[in-house]
Simulated scan of single mutants.
Amino acid sequence: MQREQRIDVLLATSVTVGVLGQWLVTSYAVMDDLHVASPLMALPEWTPATWLLQTLPVFFFASGYAQSESSSAPRLRTMPTFLLAWTAGTAVLSVNGFSLATIGEILGPAMQPLWFLVPYLLLTAIAPWLRRAVLRYGWTTVLVPAVCVALVDFVRFIWPSSGWLGYVNAVSAWAVPFLLGLAWRQGRINGVWLLGGGGMLAAALIALGDYSISMVDVPGAPMSNVAPPTAALHAFGCAQCGLAALAGDRLGRRATGSRITAVISDAAFPLYLWHQTALALISLATVRLGPISGLTSQPTGAAWLTLRLAWMPVCATVLIGLLVLARPPKPRRRLPRGRRL
């Protein structure tokens, strides 16, 4: 499949903004013990800014587009390394005196990418069947997972004890932007209608329903739109896909583009998988030093956010190092028979 600049741009933008956003709103705070905190609890007036930080719908949208003419599976080789690393890391934390509760706090954000990447792997695995469905039924294929999301939320709200049912949306909610990406490749969606309709629906659900304004997970908050995904996040995702389609149409189908966007696009899966691990490693390496402003201190205000920005280059450096270490070795080339080294 020919490489397209607009897909590289959308994937690179969604992953970069998503990673930076997660680093900005997540903190391993050192108090009597280590626990996960968020500046959004101290600064609730900043919550609408999460609409700019939540870019996973674009990630699934661009991935669906990229799969529309290819049945190749995503690169999964980094997943076993990730799981093995954290299995060993959990044992190391336990030996060094961290309680089970603290280890659970550490693992929570680090494992969170799996909630999105597992549905991503499932959707890419069945992409050939989804592609055929979109070819036959067009954008209306999206209605199946969309109705599923709405029904699950309806049952959850009228029957509070069925909160576990929300995790059905872990697949159906992300299937919506993925299918929209497949339909975009075939020219079967209208970006203006998606942007306007999805945005108005998301605003209406938040204003009239019992949905959180935040589009990212906030530790300690009574309601989350992300874990599990809700109809509000689904509507917001449709609006974001509409905006991405409009931006992509402006870029056109040029094959050439920036080298950096191509590199980030190719590394999108491992970048998102490992990004919270990088933050956890930095926090654990400095935990004996006590609270460090902007890193492991309790988020209390705008000054903390400013200091956290100064830690971003450190987080990025550690993340790049993790990707280099986790990269599987290249297969050795076989020499023709009769040749000796």
Rank of each mutant, 00 (worst) to 15 (best):
D8A: 13
A12H: 02
V15F: 03
V17Y: 04
V17W: 03
G18V: 11
Q22K: 07
L24E: 04
V25T: 15
T26Y: 08
M31R: 14
D33Y: 11
H35E: 08
S38L: 08
M41S: 12
L43W: 05
P44H: 05
W46F: 15
T47R: 13
L56G: 01
P57F: 06
Q67P: 07
S70M: 11
A73I: 11
R77D: 15
T78S: 15
M79P: 01
P80I: 06
P80S: 09
W86C: 09
A91G: 12
A91S: 13
V92L: 15
L100A: 15
G104M: 10
Q112M: 15
L122N: 01
L122I: 15
L123P: 00
L123F: 00
A125C: 07
A125S: 13
P128C: 10
T141P: 01
V144L: 14
A150F: 05
L151A: 11
R156M: 04
P160W: 08
G163I: 07
G163N: 08
Y167L: 05
V168N: 00
A173P: 00
A173H: 01
A173K: 01
W174A: 00
L179T: 10
L182S: 03
Q186N: 10
G187C: 10
G187M: 05
V192E: 01
V192P: 02
L195A: 15
G197Q: 00
A202Q: 14
A202V: 01
L205Y: 12
A207M: 11
S214L: 02
S214V: 00
M215D: 01
V218R: 01
A227P: 00
A232S: 15
A235F: 02
A245W: 01
L246N: 02
G248D: 02
R254T: 13
T256P: 04
S258G: 08
I260T: 14
A267I: 06
Q276D: 06
A278R: 08
A278D: 13
A280H: 04
I292K: 05
S297M: 09
G301A: 09
A302K: 00
L307R: 14
L309W: 11
V318R: 12
I320G: 04
L325E: 12
P331M: 15
P336I: 05
R339T: 14
